[in-house]
């Protein structure tokens, strides 16, 4: 039975010399047309000082980086939306110490309609080499209220890469959250 991550839980996803270093983080959530909302996942690759290169912020408008370490894909089906990052740790630039997975929540009627709208979204993390599910998680939050959801972070710890299920919903916009949480600096 696959592992279901809870808030704050940490798990080793790979040792430094493991041959299997490719992972797919796939998010899915229902598509409800009545309220036009959407959830956009971003990955921010940062060094130990929070330095982030603009070109290495991966999302719908920049779906991959130069060294192909992270690839983003999205599929909109009639009932459900699937968005995934394929992360190849072997190709990660050496200076990258952590990868933050954050979601920006767009809601067209946020300022007009204050009724809560809870959306459940699933995360499934697959070890691509072993073709097995490493872990999954289910979250549920009010897209009318929250503008950002910090899903988790992949980070280097001694000779491992670990995943921390942060699962934190925030009222602030994504960039403000990142500046507060990680003191990031964006460089061209």
């Amino acid at each position: 039975m696959e592992k279901v991550m809870i808030k704050g839980e940490k798990i080793v996803i790979s040792r430094m010399n493991d041959p299997s270093q490719q992972f797919v983080f796939e998010l899915s959530y229902p598509r409800i047309n009545k309220y036009l909302y959407d959830i956009d996942p971003f990955t921010f690759m940062m060094d130990e000082k929070g330095k982030i290169l603009e070109d290495e912020i991966i999302f719908y408008n920049n779906p991959f980086n130069d060294n192909d370490a992270v690839n983003y894909k999205e599929v909109y089906k009639s009932e459900k939306v699937y968005k995934s990052f394929e992360i190849n740790i072997n190709k990660m630039p050496k200076e990258v110490q952590a990868i933050s997975l954050v979601m920006s929540v767009y809601c067209k009627n946020r300022n007009k309609d204050n009724k809560p709208l809870f959306v459940e979204f699933d995360l499934e993390v697959i070890n691509k080499t072993q073709r097995s599910t490493l872990f999954s998680s289910v979250d549920n939050f009010d897209v009318m209220r929250y503008k950002t959801f910090v899903l988790g972070e992949i980070y280097k710890y001694r000779n491992s890469w670990k995943y921390n299920a942060v699962k934190q919903e925030m009222d602030d916009e994504l960039m403000k959250v990142l500046r507060k949480m990680y003191q990031i600096k964006i460089f061209k």
Binding site: E54, L174, M175, K176, R179, F187
Partner: peptide, 17 residues
């Protein structure tokens, strides 16, 4: 094409180089 600079939020932590 929309060119993002990610300098939104509070004006702290901007890089110049």
């Amino acid at each position: 094409k929309l060119d993002f600079d990610f300098k939104g939020g509070e004006a702290i932590g901007k890089g110049n180089d």
